[in-house]
Structures are given as structure tokens and as C-alpha cells.
């Protein structure tokens, strides 16, 4: 049984259809990459899988470990083992990272979150208000830290490599490798593809254009074409057969 199955999923934001008829299947321990141009619906797709209220499912269904979670609230999905590293998490004044992390550690039974914080270099901002004044790299590392605290079965990382330095990309890649090695399924949304070069294994790449999964293939086939021709022209090349 796949860990995650999307069956003809359509997602609406403010009554506008952003994702159309998306289907994919991901097994435990697999790493799938979703790529696509700006505004193609990548983040909306992840929001819908996570159950965020602004991304309303307006067609199709989401199965997690065989369970239909299409109408399950996000906090229940989190408890089932789904975690999302948000692309642009909100600044929450007054709520310290330490307080959220400690409440989550209790919820998810994390025993060594201090070590985790150290390994992800988030210790220096544990006493700061969540994401207030954080740099791009600090935001990404904090999001990964919180995802790791959840010890998820499915981790979705929304553009973890955007706006971060080379060292941070190394850290993020190590986290993805660690997730995969423990059997976590990973969906990685990337705009630039920078992170893909650092990963030892990617199982599938999905190209999302205008809200549709326009192509799914192996990384060896898809990535060189996308890097060389871009998304739209690359899709033509891929469709003709490389």
C-alpha cells in the first residue's frame, strides 16, 4: 500500500482552481521531487496534502496509508505523521521557538530535541519570537527542525533550498537523507533544483505546469532536460521522448 496516494486531486484557493486532476503515488522511504515554474501550484498542492484551510480540495481525494484524509483537519494529519516545512512561515510575535518546540516535543515524544536543535544550528534563536527577523536560512533550518520534531512518516519540504547559502543546502540535504534512511517518504518542492545535486537518491520527479502534473519520470531523465531547457521547453523535449 502506498504511503500517499493522490487521486485526481483538484485544489481551489478563493474559488479559483489552482491544481487540476493531480495523481501521484509515493511509498515509504521514497524521495519525490516536484518542480515547476512560479505560480504552477506546487505550494498549493502541498498545502492541500497538509490540510491547510486556504487550500480547499475541490475534486479528487487524498489517501494516507490507505486512509481517506481528504476532509481530515491539518492537526489530525500531523498526528497521523504528515509534516510540512512551509515555504514562507508566518512571523508570530511573542511566541518563542522554544515554547512551540517544547510543546511539540511533548506531543510527539521527542527525547533528544536539544541535540536536534544543535545539529540543525537553531539553538541561537530558540528564545526568539517565531520567524520574527529570521534570515532566509534561519527560517528554513527552523522549519526542518520542527518537521524533524514531528518524526513524520511523510515529510513535505517546500522550497527548502530557496534563498539559502551553500552550507545551509548541505545541512538540508543531510536532513533529507536522514529522513529517507529512516523510512520517511519525502516530497521535495524545488524551484531551482539546487538541492537535487546534493541528494544520493531521488525516486521520481514530477513537473507541475499550470496546476497539472505534466510529466513524471526518473531524475536521470527529467533533471538534465529541465536544467538545460527550462520547464516549458523541457516538457516539449520530454514529451517527444529523450
Amino acid at each position: 500500500m502506498p504511503l500517499l496516494e493522490l487521486i485526481g486531486l483538484s485544489v481551489c484557493v478563493d474559488n479559483k482552481r489552482i491544481v487540476e486532476d493531480a495523481s501521484l503515488s509515493l511509498n515509504s522511504g521514497e524521495v519525490h521531487v516536484i518542480m515547476g515554474p512560479n505560480g504552477s501550484g506546487k505550494s498549493t498542492l502541498l498545502s492541500a496534502i497538509m490540510g491547510l484551510r486556504n487550500a480547499r480540495v475541490c475534486g479528487g481525494s487524498i489517501l494516507f496509508n490507505g486512509l481517506d484524509i481528504t476532509n481530515t483537519p491539518s492537526y489530525e494529519r500531523a498526528k497521523l505523521g504528515i509534516a510540512l516545512a512551509h515555504q514562507s512561515p508566518p512571523e508570530i510575535k511573542g511566541v518563542r521557538l522554544r515554547d512551540v518546540a517544547s510543546a511539540m516535543a511533548k506531543k510527539y515524544g521527542c527525547s533528544d530535541c536539544t541535540l536536534l536543535a544543535k545539529n540543525l544550528f537553531v539553538e541561537p534563536f530558540m528564545n526568539r519570537s517565531l520567524f520574527v527577523g529570521f534570515s532566509g536560512g534561519e527560517r528554513k533550518k527552523t522549519e526542518l527542525f520542527l518537521v524533524m520534531l514531528q518524526d513524520p512518516k511523510l515529510a513535505m519540504l517546500d522550497e527548502p533550498d530557496s534563498g539559502v547559502d551553500v552550507e545551509s543546502i548541505e545541512v538540508i540535504a543531510r536532513v533529507i537523507e536522514s529522513l529517507r534512511s529512516r523510512g520517511t517518504g519525502v516530497i521535495l518542492v524545488t524551484h531551482t533544483g539546487a538541492i537535487t545535486e546534493k541528494l544520493s537518491r531521488i525516486d521520481k520527479v514530477h513537473v507541475l505546469i499550470d496546476g497539472r502534473i505534466a510529466y513524471t519520470g526518473s531524475p536521470d531523465v527529467v533533471l538534465p532536460v529541465v536544467f538545460k531547457f527550462g520547464f516549458r521547453k523541457g516538457l516539449e523535449v520530454l514529451s517527444r521522448g529523450v
Binding site: 491547510l52 492537526y75 512551509h86 508570530i92 511566541v95 512551540v100 510543546a103 511539540m104 510527539y108 514531528q150
Partner: peptide, 18 residues
Amino acid sequence: LMSRGFTEEEAKAVLVRG
């Protein structure tokens, strides 16, 4: 916060506390 596993009431309490 709900996406991090907090129920709506728990999330509100965290935000009010903050």
C-alpha cells in the same frame, strides 16, 4: 500551528500567550 499538530483551541492558546 494547526499544521504542527495543535488543535484549534491549543493553537489559539499559544497565540494568546504569545
